[in-house]
Design a protein around this nucleic acid. Structure first.
Length: 484
RNA sequence: GCCGUCGUAGCUCAGCUGGUAGAGCAGCGGACUUUUAAUCCGAAGCGCGUGGGUUCGAGCCCCACCGACGGCACCA
């Protein structure tokens, strides 16, 4: 140890690394077998009384999180994914040399420990260390052991630091994972099969959004990153797979906000011989199942059916404008202007409707709500309503003022689909950058005959936000988009 | 893209109306058969986001840029 120049925190750790090697200790060994989760140890001794010693030995592994005391006896905290446990280090147990080695370890080092369980005088379940092994030297100081990491930028850019410092952060992503696996379980149990469709697509579609474009060198052509998996999944319904789902990443080249990340995880599932009302029931069932499975205890009741209202009714109720009476841009624009609402010049009729919904309806939909029956103009892939050809059989689901799902009776008439694409083409020509491109190959698929089908897509990230009570999507995406 | 706020030691934060920077934790040295965020003593550690400018003097004032956050715009 040099005695003139003070070591900074990084240099001190490097020096300890060197000293470990000099002492014949491998700072990065290959394996540590037989460790049990700390939570399992705690469970085993849950009813151990204060001050009582056992003769049960346990092997655990994790990160050194705190140290109290030194000299002849010290306490250390070890943390693994399942929890935290106190270690008691005693010189009479370990001998002077091993004791010194153990106490010379840095917070953040990964350690494997054998120890005997006992309950301390203060009533804390602890392991008296009988043996230990350095499993990985940490060369970078961990965040403050008490305050943790609070700088959001650092938390998102270096999520590992956030996770290693924060049990809450770990719990959040564990809940997210359990949510996804519960969704899979539900669908698997109900006859759905999981499939994978292209992310790199020659033509994008299935949603209203601007895509990312990339390039394939060998094929010598541009490809799009998918904005949805819808069209491919419905081709699988044509193919007779009957019930399919895909959980995967979609990419939309749009703004970033507390509810938008440029890449996000979406699940879509399609069920042959079902309509959108079946889909609505199944969606409610699925949400009830998932929230039970993850032990959701938030403020929203997902065990009940969702509120339902029609889209047109929801707009009229809140703005007094009846979009069914104003079915062209001119007329709707005038009606909005009459109410003193702004009417963006370049907006097409569908965009004005979208404006009314997102500004005046969506924010009010805090309780789980399904908005039913959308105008055909803004739903080019949905089947016409059986009672009103100007509408489609479609619903969107909302919670906490946020859209979480979009579903419909799928359009399976290839001629009608062709006309819808034509309309989209016209919208694109009038400046709608999100109009859906004409997909000939999809029409061709429909011509083989697609059974009546119900389908839905919903955002996993937004669902996770709602079920974990997070305000922003960045909290629930491990590595959210950041500028360079 | 626009407006506002913010960017100080590894981490969490102070820094009054401009006078060349501090604390706690962590780290380092030492003491103590000891604990539950912080035992005690001691010695360290900061290019104050980047680049300009004003000033005798700038972490504090001005400009530009970068990044983050919030709002708006945009966006299922």
């Amino acid at each position: 140890m040099s005695d003139e120049q003070p070591l900074d925190v990084f240099a001190a750790r490097r020096q300890k690394l060197t000293e470990l090697r000099a002492a014949g200790v491998e700072p990065f060994p290959w394996v540590f077998s037989g460790a049990e989760p700390i939570a399992a140890v705690r469970e085993r001794h849950a009813d151990l009384e204060v001050g009582v010693e056992t003769s049960v030995s346990h092997r655990v592994a994790g990160r050194l999180a705190a140290r109290r005391g030194q000299g002849k006896m010290a306490f250390l905290d070890l943390v693994d994914r399942s929890g935290r446990i106190q270690l008691q280090a005693r010189v009479d147990e370990l001998g002077a040399q091993r004791m010194e080695l153990l106490l010379s370890l840095d917070l953040g080092d990964i350690v494997g420990v054998d120890g005997v369980a006992f309950n301390s005088r203060r009533g804390e379940l602890s392991l008296r260390v009988t043996g230990f092994e350095v499993l990985a030297k940490s060369l970078r100081p961990p965040p403050d052991k008490h305050h943790g990491l609070t700088d959001v930028e650092t938390r998102f850019r270096h999520r590992e630091a956030d996770l290693l410092a924060s049990e809450e952060a770990r719990a959040l992503f564990i809940t997210r994972a359990r949510m996804i696996s519960a969704i899979r379980r539900y669908l698997d149990q109900n006859g759905f099969i999981e499939v994978e469709t292209p992310i790199l697509q020659p033509l994008y579609g299935g949603a209203a959004a601007r895509p990312f474009v990339t390039h394939h060198n060998e094929l010598g052509r541009d490809l799009y990153l998918r904005i949805a998996s819808e069209l491919y999944l419905k081709r699988l319904i044509v193919g007779g797979l009957e019930r399919v789902y895909e959980i995967g990443r979609n990419f939309r080249n749009e703004g970033v906000s507390h509810k938008h990340n440029p890449e996000f995880t979406m699940i879509e599932y399609y069920e042959a011989y079902a309509d959108y009302l079946d889909v609505a029931r199944r969606f409610e069932q699925l949400m009830a199942f998932v929230t039970r499975e993850i032990g959701y205890e938030g403020p929203v009741d997902f065990q009940r059916p969702w509120h339902r209202e029609t889209l047109a009714g929801s707009i009229e109720r809140r703005t007094g404008i009846d979009i069914e009476r104003h079915r062209d841009r001119e007329s709707l624009g005038a009606a909005m202007a009459a109410k003193g609402l702004p009417v963006p010049e370049t907006d097409t009729w569908p965009q004005l409707v979208d404006e009314l919904v997102s500004k005046h309806v969506e924010p009010t939909l805090v309780e789980p709500t399904l908005l039913m029956d959308y105008p055909v103009e803004i739903s080019p892939l949905a089947k016409r309503h059986r009672d009103d050809p100007r509408l489609v059989e479609r619903f969107e689901a909302f919670v906490n003022g946020m859209e979480v799902a979009n579903a419909f009776s799928e359009l399976n008439d290839p001629d009608d689909q062709r006309e819808r694409f034509e309309q989209q083409r016209a919208l694109a020509a009038s400046g709608d950058e999100e109009a859906q491109p004409y997909d000939e190959s999809y029409i061709r698929a429909l011509e083989y005959g697609m059974p009546p089908t119900g389908g839905i897509g919903f955002g996993i990230d937004r669902m996770a936000m709602i079920l974990t009570g997070q305000r922003t999507i960045r909290e629930i995406v491990l590595f959210p988009a950041m500028r360079d």
